[in-house]
Design a protein around this nucleic acid. Structure first.
Lengths: 219, 219
DNA sequence: GCTAAACGCGAATAAGTAGTCGCTTACAAG
DNA sequence: CTTGTAAGCGACTACTTATTCGCGTTTAGC
């Protein structure tokens, strides 16, 4: 019943003309997706936006979802490039600064492509997992994992690294996304500060004597 | 272009027979939505699942989205009832226990209705804001707001209550949802513990002198 | 300039969709 | 039983959709 999410080209473009056409298709699809959403992005509309015939879409893509998947893969590549550059740029910096810079870069990128981001968040479930976006998320998570494992004794000694990583990834990811998509009346700097406080408060050593701390066994 | 999200009945059912029919429609719609998703829930399919004619749908609902909206409203009412009962039951308890019980109840409810929850998370944006679900979220947020304001001096003195509430709501909400929908290999108790640690670590007094958070600005 | 393949077109197809309407059936009051 | 109205039916409409296919056009190599 479900179609395989093949995103390979049906036919390999050989002349310049056709290579430009594939580009035009993907650009138009990106635009139409951003403006009209997944359901509004009909093949006819994409073809019209690209200034080509709908039939020509099927010269290079086996079906509509392959076009969408390629658009989103491209976007994931873009994100990976930008964030990768940011990571390299912060290689020597202390982790708080590096994390902060990375977070800032991520939110900036999300803001820049908010429309496309919305499509991804809302429609990806039905497109099945997107390999490149998953890879990107895994890459970022691994980065944090390495740090956590190397500095284990600086943190709560009962910290379960895998659980913590899942929670942190989920938290930082979705808070960034929801901030960009829902635009709550909170300045961007504030969100970054608060997210940083959330993360640090979670992994740092243990509570000061005053507070009651963990909520188990109250005597 | 957009249709008003009217969810009122087109015609008020007067006989028992027709009241049962409205029930049958909503039950069938819930089932079909859970199993086939929004796009797969065609009016014909809903009618077939209810064992009635498609024409009869339009006796009581002005259009398809009104059916869906009613299903989701009903679900929101169910959640509100259950969580409301939990809140009442914990009225005297210390806040850590009360919060924990509420969180536990919420995750339990989500697990029980995971299919419907998935539809809501993935399809709600195009239905426009769902009043009853928003009301529920506001109700829970207000509960926490009251607590935060009453006990302000027990926490970080620089805590921005509005920003903190937004972050906390987003975090607790989406982590619960993603936990139920993505089923990471983490036991349920662990997730609740970790979420509690995350929240407490975020709002509690300030960090111990050893660690160097960037974000302190201790005046 | 010729030819064969690559390219591109757009009308046509087949499958679905939400929503309507004239009709029949069930009910309840007199 | 008769009659007015509520309830229910299902074929039908008007439309949109993704995808195909035969045919004309452009290109590259000779």
């Amino acid at each position: 019943m479900d179609r395989p999410p093949a995103r390979s080209l049906r036919r390999v473009p050989q002349q310049d003309r056709s290579r430009r056409m594939v580009e035009r298709i993907l650009d138009a699809a990106t635009r139409v997706l951003s403006e009209h959403g997944y359901d509004g992005a009909s093949t006819n509309r994409i073809a019209a936006a690209a200034g080509i015939s709908n039939g020509s879409l099927y010269q290079y893509f086996p079906h509509k979802d392959a076009i969408v998947a390629t658009v989103l893969d491209r976007f994931a590549d873009h994100l990976a490039d930008q964030l990768g550059a940011q990571i390299e740029a912060s290689l020597g910096a202390p982790w708080q600064e590096a994390g902060r810079a990375l977070l800032e870069a991520q939110i900036g990128l999300f803001e820049e492509h908010a429309d496309l981001l919305r499509i991804i968040v809302e429609q990806v479930p039905r497109l099945g997992p997107l390999d490149k976006l998953n890879a990107l998320q895994r890459r970022l998570t691994d980065l944090v994992r390495v740090y956590l494992l190397l500095n284990r004794r600086a943190f709560r000694d009962d910290l379960d690294v895998d659980a913590a990583l899942w929670i942190l990834a989920e938290t930082v990811g979705t808070v960034s996304i929801r901030y960009v998509l829902d635009r709550p009346p909170i300045p961007r700097e504030k969100i970054i500060d608060e997210l940083a406080a959330l993360v640090v408060g979670y992994i740092r050593a243990q509570e000061p004597p005053g507070s009651t701390g963990r909520m188990n066994v109250r005597s």
